[in-house]
Design a protein around this nucleic acid. Structure first.
Lengths: 252, 252
DNA sequence: CGTACACCGTTTATGACATACACAGTGCCT
DNA sequence: AGGCACTGTGTATGTCATAAACGGTGTACG
């Protein structure tokens, strides 16, 4: 095994929090978790998560593949560490006073982080991920942003989850459009889809498409307010308006 | 290559829409896309996405591994087809009149689908996925649910995206808690985390944790309103309230 | 102060897997 | 009637993650 420590925690958690006991007896270590993770991230940034193999990481550090296993008990563990390292938020952050503006600023921070390391979106965001240091810090910052919002703790946590998932989705969509956007937008391709999505089978959507929606004919320009940026902003608007209305309802 | 057709579309799209031209000249085919996808889904349902290998799928159909490649140009293509088949929504659906109730019902439908095939959440949801038949049908249904809502087409599409992403996140969280929940909840593990998440480094979150929040001490009981079900409902509330408020603002 | 052993980085080996390629049979189209 | 597009198959290759065994190293304990 090796995936979990005696504490029952995924070992990645112990490593990330720095509570993994360091061996005392042997020769001094030639590597550190930090260097390994940094090397892996560099590869992922350059060539995608698929290029991150134990061999590639090791070679970039001038070590043998197997040497990495002295530090990381599996590739999965390495990926978890990478995930945590990817969601870094600046050290010092000044959040606006109004919780609405603060939440927007907070969302933008996360978006920047994901944009910087888009491969992080391919990794499952589960409970273990939520307990990693940077994620915890990000959550803390989110709570700070909502200081002026009159909701319960549990609701604030849920709101954080909600918003961060929204940001993640939008960056992922953004990425996917970037990658395959031009491909799908081939005139023949769009034509085929228009033939397939007929009003009798998809009455509502077909209407939208007839009005030019849903399928992007042209690769969305970055400044297009109707593009992913628009959906990002729209989602934030809806979420914040929803929280506002919930708070108002709560007050009565 | 083989990943895309002459139309520029991912071949999976053409197959799923049934517009892939069938070969005429050779021996009759012993398999169909449907059977292959069904077999793969059965494996994924039983043993997870990791158990879906070309060999395993082929064996379950009593064919050779390579024979699958006569129908599917790559494993990735098979996965895309599986993804589409997984998000099936019942044939006949009666949605409530009020758009709020309708959206809730719609969200529940998606949740059921994801719960039935949780592995679908591990596959990237990009643009190509959005154009697959079942997803299109689901989107159409979502639009139907919002018939009584006074927003623009683009906004409704964005709302659909928003809600379905929320549902996906919650089912994924649910799954992850189910899988690793007890593990993290080891007393020693929780203790370690409490020591790491100190008030000076994480002032807001530490406070929440002191009040018993954020970390689940015990595996969440399914009926716990504070559990994932609670967050699911909370998210829906926020989203719907947000849409409501947006509509109200629009009316003025 | 020496020695045992825990730990280092390496070499070699194994077993999944996805997938390319070449083959022998099959049945529609000309 | 026969070519050829296509079928399912067997074999081969290359990439990976990872296990196991090994000789060197330095710390802790006798």
């Amino acid at each position: 095994m090796g995936e979990t420590t005696e504490t029952g925690l995924p070992r990645a958690l112990a490593i990330a929090w720095g509570v993994q006991d360091v061996p005392q007896r042997g020769p001094s270590r030639g590597l550190t978790h930090e260097r390994i993770v940094a090397a892996a991230i560099e590869i992922a940034d350059a060539d995608g998560l698929g290029a991150v193999t134990m061999q590639a990481v090791a070679k970039s550090l001038d070590f043998t593949t197997m040497s990495l296993y002295r530090y990381v008990s599996s590739k999965d563990e390495l990926l978890r560490l990478m995930q945590d390292a990817a969601v870094t938020v600046p050290e010092k952050v000044e959040l606006p006073d109004d919780w609405r503006d603060a939440l927007r600023a907070w969302a933008d921070l996360i978006r920047d982080a994901y944009r910087a390391h888009p491969w992080a979106l391919e990794l499952p965001r589960g409970q273990a991920a939520v307990l990693m240091p940077r994620t915890v810090r990000t959550a803390d910052l989110g709570l700070a942003a909502m200081a002026g919002l009159d909701l319960s703790d549990g609701e604030k946590i849920a709101a954080i989850l909600l918003i961060s998932q929204h940001v993640a989705s939008m960056v992922e969509l953004e990425r996917s459009l970037e990658a395959e956007g031009e491909v799908v937008a081939t005139p023949e391709g769009v034509e085929m889809l228009r033939r397939a999505i007929t009003p009798d089978r998809f009455p509502h959507l077909a209407e939208v498409m007839a009005a030019g929606g849903y399928i992007a004919d042209a690769p969305a320009r970055p400044d297009d307010p109707e593009g992913v940026d628009g959906e990002y902003a729209f989602g934030l608007d809806v979420l914040i308006a929803g929280l506002e209305s919930l708070e108002r309802r709560r007050r009565e």
